[in-house]
């Protein structure tokens, strides 16, 4: 039977690790967790990122946080990836499977999974047209140019 006392053991084990690791948090993953995100399935997406980061030993290098409504409710679950010195990448209509793929290819491999980004969704999924904000359209333009 698991007990709270186990946390003490985890603490002792992690203390040295936490002290040693330099929390660079050079990659920040943000998941939209307002009503729209939660209803669309953000909970398992967030769980997948947290789980994969732990498995890959990337705690301290990659952080995951929760945020409110990002403003494109139709495209939820939405995940934003911030990497130091790079343009933010916005992934839309995420699933736990897609989250794992983003972990592998983007977070670990450094290559954007273009087909899940908001730019691509905008390009091929014209129906979502109206749900994008001006900043996202602008970002999409930059994305096309860059």
């Amino acid at each position: 039977m698991k007990t709270l006392e186990e946390l003490s053991a985890i603490r002792n084990r992690m203390k040295s690790k936490v002290a040693l690791r330099e929390d660079s948090n050079e990659i920040r993953i943000v998941v939209g967790m307002a009503t729209c995100g939660i209803a669309a399935g953000a909970r398992p997406v967030l769980a997948a990122f947290v789980e994969e980061i732990e498995k890959a030993g990337l705690v301290g290098t990659v952080s995951v946080s929760q945020t409110g409504c990002i403003g494109m409710c139709k495209s939820e679950p939405i995940v934003e990836v911030y990497k130091a010195g790079e343009e933010k990448v916005t992934y839309v209509k995420m699933t736990p499977e897609k989250a794992r793929e983003v972990m592998e290819k983007h977070i670990k491999g450094g290559k954007h999974v273009v087909e899940y980004t908001v730019g691509t969704a905008y390009n091929y999924g014209g129906r979502n047209h109206d749900s994008y904000t001006c900043t996202d359209l602008w970002r999409y333009r930059l994305y096309l140019v860059g």
Binding site: L4, I10, R11, V18, V50, E51, E54
Partner: peptide
């Protein structure tokens, strides 16, 4: 009660702690 066990050394939201909570 979890914080009491973890002290100030380990944040509650650490992925390893979340995994423990799940189990």
């Amino acid at each position: 009660e979890m914080r009491e066990m973890l002290g100030e050394d380990v944040p509650l939201g650490d992925p390893e702690i979340v995994a423990w909570v799940r189990d």
